[in-house]
Design a protein around this nucleic acid. Structure first.
Lengths: 158, 158
DNA sequence: GCACCTTTGTTGAACGCTCAAGCGCACGCT
DNA sequence: AGCGTGCGCTTGAGCGTTCAACAAAGGTGC
């Protein structure tokens, strides 16, 4: 491919494998979740993030950082999750600039129903294909890449 | 996260790193291409695939397989590339079922203009962060995952 | 020649994401 | 108090993807 001039052969090969492994994996996970649970993967991550927060509640900003989402994207997404009855929004009377998002009972149930199938898919398509050493190597390489892409401020969620 | 029950700690960690490394990387590459070359990454891949084909021409089906795209997605994409003047479609009078996609001169120029910036971004965000051993390990792990997801065609001829 | 099926590709609607613009609240300044 | 500035979040339009439905061409069997 003309495209890959500037990368040596090992890099071209690695890039193609990474590209298609990730794209195909995300595609199959998205399809599985959409089909079995009626939500795309991004929405699953939002519900999962909320489920791990105290009182199942976070501000929109915290949530956006947790799921690496732009404010706009999150706002649209939560609007849709709200009409699904899975999330409720409200304003904190003491910090009226902030909007908090709260996982509803129905939202938690939807997440709990979706989780086993999703985790099983991750296991089947990712971890069942890798040795323990490969899992370690994958984690290390991806951690290096992610660290370079992460908005340098406070890499760990507050 | 409630979500990750069923994966051990090493797997959870690896999954998160892989997830965010890939998502953030694809986001930044998409943004770079859209900004500098006026095309999303998926369209770049289509032009690149055509540029490597004899006579810069492939059938829609071949092209769809090359870029791991559904027929529908490719049809929409090529329609758009056609209005941009980067691809032309036509029917072969001898095999009238097939539609050919042909990379135009303007398409090749657009690809050639886009390639260096894209490759530089891949290098900067991916390979500059990894040792040669990490690149090898990443390729191997991703190859195993991709092989499990690929529709198994190509290895065996028909 | 005819009915049926498969292959190949397109279409339209729904949906998620991005980008640019905008709104409301809080804070700092004078 | 009045005014600007920045932050947090939302909005609307446009684009790309998906899904289901469809269309057209080439078999295949009778």
């Amino acid at each position: 491919m003309t495209a890959a001039r500037g990368l040596d052969e090992a890099e071209q090969h690695a890039w193609r494998e990474f590209l298609w492994a990730a794209r195909l994996l995300f595609d199959v996970l998205d399809r599985q979740l959409q089909h079995d649970a009626g939500m795309p993967h991004a929405y699953y991550l939002i519900l999962a993030a909320l489920s791990g927060a105290p009182d199942h509640t976070m501000t929109m900003g915290e949530l956006a950082r947790a799921v690496r989402s732009s404010p706009s994207r999150l706002s649209h997404a939560v609007a849709r999750l709200e009409t699904a009855g899975w999330v409720r929004r409200g304003r904190d009377p003491h910090h009226r600039r902030h909007t908090y998002a709260h996982l509803t009972g129905a939202g938690l149930r939807a997440l709990t129903a979706a989780a086993p199938g999703h985790v099983a898919a991750v296991r089947r398509h990712l971890f069942d294909r890798l040795s323990a050493a490969q899992v370690d190597a994958l984690r290390e390489a991806c951690a290096a890449v992610r660290a370079g892409l992460e908005p340098a401020a406070g890499a760990s969620p507050r």
